[in-house]
Computed example of a mutant assay.
Amino acid sequence: MSIRVLSAAMIGLAIPSLGLLTMPSASAQHLFDLGVRQLQPGTIIPVQSFKGEEPQYFSPNSTHPLTLRVAQDIYNGSGQLVIPAGSEVRGSLRPTQGGARFFGTALIVNGRLYSVQMSSDLIHDEKDPRHYSAEAIAQDAAIGAVGGTVLGLLTGGVSALGVIGGAGAGVAVGNITAPQVVVLRPNQTINLTLNSPVRL
């Protein structure tokens, strides 16, 4: 009789224990979820320069190491926040026909580094805007005006028209000879496309 009572007591103790095993706590579920947030290839990640107050200028003929920041929170299809705004994307700006493309190879989220493959569309090169600044135009005009004066002296006469024409020629030559550069402007957003899955 005592053996039967003891067996029943042991079964009764075992049932709650099994219930605890099959019903994990909220904290245990949270721990289980860690590390499973994933983004699929094709996800668009908007990024911007860290140097938001000044334009950055890059030669389109060279590769430049570059770090950009994620411009907005990135969520996956399940509504989970995967990449918080402000996270870093490290990579390089590489020459491409007509300009350059940014290739991201590392992502830093909450101090942890992840290997990634991201790329931008073509960022077109352009005439260096610094050659169109008021100071640069004034310098080109002054050089041209001096050239017009010298030319007038050599040809037998200096006129106001010659000086003005020389100034205009100086501005034109400065604009024509300005080198091509790739410019990242303040608050300019570049869309990166994720080329491989990311699991954080």
Rank of each mutant, 00 (worst) to 15 (best):
Pro84Ser: 00
Gln117Ser: 14
Thr22Tyr: 11
Gln40Glu: 13
Val109Leu: 02
Gly144Lys: 15
Gly147Pro: 04
Thr189Asp: 03
Ala28Cys: 04
Leu81Asp: 07
His124Glu: 15
Pro95Glu: 08
Leu192Arg: 02
His124Ser: 15
Met1Arg: 12
Tyr75Thr: 00
Ser120Arg: 05
Leu200Gly: 04
Ser7Ala: 06
Leu192Gly: 02
Thr177Lys: 14
Thr105Gln: 10
Arg94Ile: 01
Tyr57Leu: 07
Thr43Ser: 10
Ala26Trp: 00
Gln117His: 03
Ala85Asn: 08
His131Val: 01
Ser133Arg: 12
Gln38Glu: 08
Met1Asn: 14
Phe102Gly: 12
Gln188Glu: 15
Leu6Phe: 10
Asp73Ser: 05
Phe103Tyr: 09
Arg37Tyr: 06
Leu107Asp: 08
Ala178Phe: 00
Leu113Ser: 11
His131Ile: 02
Leu6Ala: 13
Ile83Val: 01
Tyr57Gly: 09
Gln29Glu: 11
Gln38Met: 12
Val198Ala: 07
Ala160Asp: 03
Ile190Cys: 06
Val5Leu: 03
Met118Asp: 10
Tyr57Ile: 07
Gly170Gln: 13
Glu135Ile: 15
Arg130Val: 00
Gly77Val: 08
Ile3Trp: 04
Glu54Ser: 13
Thr96His: 09
Ser59Gly: 09
Ser2Glu: 03
Arg185Thr: 01
Leu21Ala: 04
Arg130Cys: 01
Phe102Asp: 07
Arg94Gln: 12
Phe50Arg: 12
Ile164Ala: 09
Val36Ile: 08
Tyr75Glu: 00
Gln40Gly: 03
Gly156Gln: 08
